[in-house]
Design a protein around this nucleic acid. Structure first.
Length: 152
DNA sequence: GCCAACGTTGGC
DNA sequence: GCCAACGTTGGC
């Protein structure tokens, strides 16, 4: 099993929103970055656990645990002219944007802020904490996951 | 609102 | 294929 971190702006879609969805599941649409897409298309497997991260907000950090709950399939918003994620570029090789479903998995006892993550010496190598990282989906090692899980 | 970092675009 | 310009991300 692999571990991941997925960023979401809580004003747009928070961990609490995920929990309230039908089946507590949401298609992770709107990703328009090739590296992030490739993770979903090639590497994320059903059952992989996800640190659900709140970004671009007052207190960024890990809000809860989610999991991958589908195989990869095309992001329907790329075909929707009314969607802000519409992508009109022709694609002779099929759909350009691929996603997976994300489901609520587990509540954390408390929110783990970015500030707290930065204080852990063992997490210094974490991709999230490297400067200039802008990817919205990042791989997390099992030891990083366990360290974070044990903070609460 | 600022700004560093980085991805994408498009002219050549 | 290079690279400058531009747009976006995201912490602060």
């Amino acid at each position: 099993m692999n571990y991941w971190l997925m960023k979401s702006e809580p004003d747009v879609f928070s961990f609490a929103d995920l929990k309230k969805r039908p089946n507590q599941t949401e298609p992770w649409n709107g990703v328009r970055n090739y590296q992030a897409r490739n993770f979903m298309r090639d590497d994320m497997k059903i059952g992989d656990l996800i640190l659900f991260y709140h970004s671009s907000c007052e207190i960024p950090g890990v809000a809860g645990i989610a999991r991958v709950s589908s195989i990869p399939y095309p992001d329907s918003t790329q075909f929707d002219k009314k969607s802000e994620y519409f992508d009109s570029k022709p694609s002779k090789d099929g759909p350009r944007w691929i996603l997976i479903d994300v489901s609520f998995h587990e509540e954390l006892k408390r929110f783990i802020s970015l500030e707290e993550l930065k204080k852990q010496p063992e997490l210094a190598g974490m991709r999230l904490l490297q400067r200039g990282n802008r990817l919205s989906i990042l791989p997390v090692t099992s030891s990083e996951y366990n360290i974070i899980r044990n903070l609460v």
